[in-house]
Simulated scan of single mutants.
Amino acid sequence: MHLNNKKEKKTYLVTGSAGFIGYFVCKKLLFQGSSVIGIDNLNDYYDVNLKQTRLEDLNTYENFTFFQEDISDRSALENVFLKYKPNIVINLAAQAGVRYSIENPDVYMQSNVTGFYNILEACRHFPVDHLIYASSSSVYGANKKVPFEETDFVDHPVSLYASTKKSNELMAHTYSHLYDIPATGLRFFTVYGPMGRPDMAYYGFTDKYFAGEPIKIFNNGDFENDLYRDFTYIDDIVEGIVKLIPRTPSGEGDVKHEIFNIGNNNPEKLMHFITSLENALSKSLGKTVEFNKIYEPIKPGDVPRTYASTDRLHQAVGFKPKTSIEEGLQKFADWYVQYHKLTENAKEVQVTNS
C-alpha cells in the first residue's frame, strides 16, 4: 500500500452524481474545494424531482460541472475523459434495486455491465490515479456465516443485481492486472439518510404512512428470526470513501485492486429499525406515529441478513462508522417532513457537507 502525497489539485469524475451516494460524495469534495465533474442520466427509476433537487444544490458550486449522459454511451463518456482528464474516478452510477432486477433485467446489463466496462476502458485509455467503484453487500448472497468478510465465498448471488456487482469486481481485477489501473471496490451495506432513495424500505414505509396505507414487511411476522440489516448512515459512507481516495491499492501480487466492505458493523433487526423510524417521525411531527403493518413472505432475491465486517477498512484507513440508527433516522425524518412540507412546524434541516 502506498499513500499518495501529491498536493496538486485533483479533478474528480463522479458518475451517478445526482444519485443518493453520488450527491453526498460530490458535495463533500466540492466543500473541500476540489473540481468535480458529474455524470448522471437522470433516469426515472425513482422520482426525478429528487434527483433535480440534489443537482440544483451541486450546481451552486462553481467548481462543479455536470453532464446528463449515460455511462453505457461509450463515446459520450470518452469525450468527458478526453476533455477533463480526471485524476480520480468514483463510479457510483448503476441500476440499483434487487427486486427490480427480476422485473427489468435489461437495464442492469446496460448500466451495470456495459456501463462499467466503458468506465474501465476510459480509465485504460486515459490513465487515472485511482478508480473507486460501487459494489454491493448483495454479492454475499444467502451466506450464513456472519459477519461477512471480504475473503468469503461470493459465487452464489441470488439476484441479477448481485451478479452484475460481482461481475464488476471481476472486471476491475482483470483491468487492474492487464492495464495497471489502481482500483478499489466498495461493498455498500444498506445506505440510508436524508435525500435518500425512495425505493429503499425506510423511505417507502414513510411514504406509505403519509398516504394512509399499510406497510409490507417481508419476514412472515417471525420476530424471533427477524431479518437483520447492517444499516449504514450516509455520512459514514462518505467518510469511508473520502478516506480511501488517496490510498493506492496494493492488492495481491502486482494487481492494484482491493475490495472493502463499507457498513455499520452493527446489524439491526428490521422490526427495531421500523420502531426507531416510528419514534423519529413522532418527534419530527410532534405526534405519535405507528405504521399499519402487513407481514408477508420474504421476496425472491432478498437475503435474510446482512452484517459487515469492517476490520479490513478500519485497518486500511481508520474507518469506523459512528452514527446510531436512532440518530440517523431522526435526521432522515426531520428532512422528510421539511422537504415534503408536512407540518408548519417542520424543522429547517441543513444537509451536511459530509
Rank of each mutant, 00 (worst) to 15 (best):
P105M: 13
E213I: 10
A172P: 14
K166L: 11
F66L: 14
K347S: 09
L42M: 06
D47H: 15
S159V: 06
S75T: 14
K341H: 06
H173V: 03
H156K: 15
D235N: 13
E78H: 15
Y228F: 11
E278K: 05
I241F: 04
S324E: 00
V242M: 01
K166R: 10
H177I: 01
Y100H: 15
K293M: 02
Y161G: 01
V238Y: 06
P86R: 12
E224I: 07
T323Q: 01
M271K: 07
V154R: 07
V349G: 14
M271I: 09
L42V: 03
F31H: 10
L160E: 02
R312D: 09
V154P: 06
T288N: 12
T15I: 12
E169M: 13
P182H: 05
D57V: 03
D236I: 04
Y161L: 03
S17P: 06
E69G: 10
I215D: 01
E239P: 00
I132R: 05
T288A: 12
G240R: 00
M195C: 15
S17N: 07
H340G: 06
T323G: 02
V158T: 06
V113Q: 14
P147V: 01
F319Q: 03
S276E: 13
R124A: 06
F189N: 06
L227I: 08
G97E: 13
K243P: 01
A346S: 12
I37W: 04
V25I: 07
K287Y: 06
A134N: 04
S34C: 13
S324R: 08
G212T: 00
I119A: 08
Y84F: 15
V107D: 04
G115L: 09
L92H: 11
